[in-house]
């Protein structure tokens, strides 16, 4: 459903992504792995239109999305849970979730999607009237994921969901992502530094180093790869 080819992107005159190509199928969880500064977030920003790629192509369900504005890409069904969550901390949990409904369609289905989100994350229903900034880190990450799900994604991009969270909460969130992919046929692009957890949740993965795709393969292949073991898993 998503096919990225020879994507180049960066900030100003600094190019960060070099000819990145990757593919993602319906209902698949694909991990994008790499260390800090490898270009993972830049890739997310390029795919979601928050920065303008310098060249390349991003085809999503047969439509070319490269260089389209972020709102257009959102309407096409690519919704991200950004790095650092980016919640509206002084607004309530419910208001945060309301902000996730950006289009006419998502507004119409808001109530049923809200109930679904409450089913995924029962904590959020208890905390609905609380300011998002007063929640724990894990709960805030749940709000961020729920806010994206309110946007009825066809492709959900999770950017560093493990950042600053306790391991068991990361497992919870990755489990939700995995279940979503299998049951609701939402594809998930999982961008992670925590490679062990990411590979456990993903079907396939790409390893990015210095803005290039260094390796790709199924999750098992990557977990068994000597380079991955040495460079990332410390085995």
């Amino acid at each position: 459903m998503l096919k990225v080819e020879n994507l180049n992107a960066g900030y100003g005159s600094v190019n960060i992504l070099w000819d990145v190509s990757m593919e993602l199928n319906d209902g698949e969880v694909v991990a994008v792995l790499g260390s800090n500064g490898a270009g993972k977030t830049t890739m997310v920003r390029a795919i979601t239109g928050m920065i303008r790629p310098t060249s390349g192509s991003i085809v999503f369900n047969g439509e070319e999305l490269c260089k389209k504005p972020s709102r257009y890409i959102l309407d096409a069904g690519i919704v991200q849970v950004p790095e650092g969550r980016q919640l509206f901390t002084e607004m309530t949990v419910l208001e945060n979730l309301q902000m996730g409904a950006f289009s006419k369609e998502t507004k119409e289905h808001f109530q049923e999607n809200l109930e679904k989100c409450y089913k995924w994350f029962p904590k959020l229903e208890e905390r609905a009237k609380q300011a998002a900034g007063t929640l724990s880190g894990g709960e805030q990450q749940m709000v961020a994921v729920a806010r994206a799900l309110i946007g009825m994604p066809k492709l959900l991009i999770l950017d560093e969901p493990s950042l600053g969270l306790a391991p068991n909460i990361v497992d919870d969130i990755l489990n939700v992502a995995k279940t979503l992919a299998k049951e609701s046929n939402i594809s998930v692009l999982l961008v992670e530094q925590d490679i062990t957890k990411a590979l456990a949740a993903a079907d396939r993965g790409y390893v990015i180093e210095n803005g290039h795709v260094a390796l790709s393969g199924t999750a098992d292949e990557l977990a068994a790869n000597e380079h991955v073991k040495k460079a990332y898993l410390g085995i």
């Binding site: 928050m50 959102l74 991200q80 950004p82 509206f88 607004m91 950006f102 289009s103 806010r147 946007g151």
Partner: peptide, 15 residues
């Protein structure tokens, strides 16, 4: 209010 609290989050939400 969303934009005032978090412009990046606002853009992510399509505002």
């Amino acid at each position: 209010r969303a934009v005032s609290q978090n412009p990046v989050g606002a853009e992510v939400c399509g505002i």
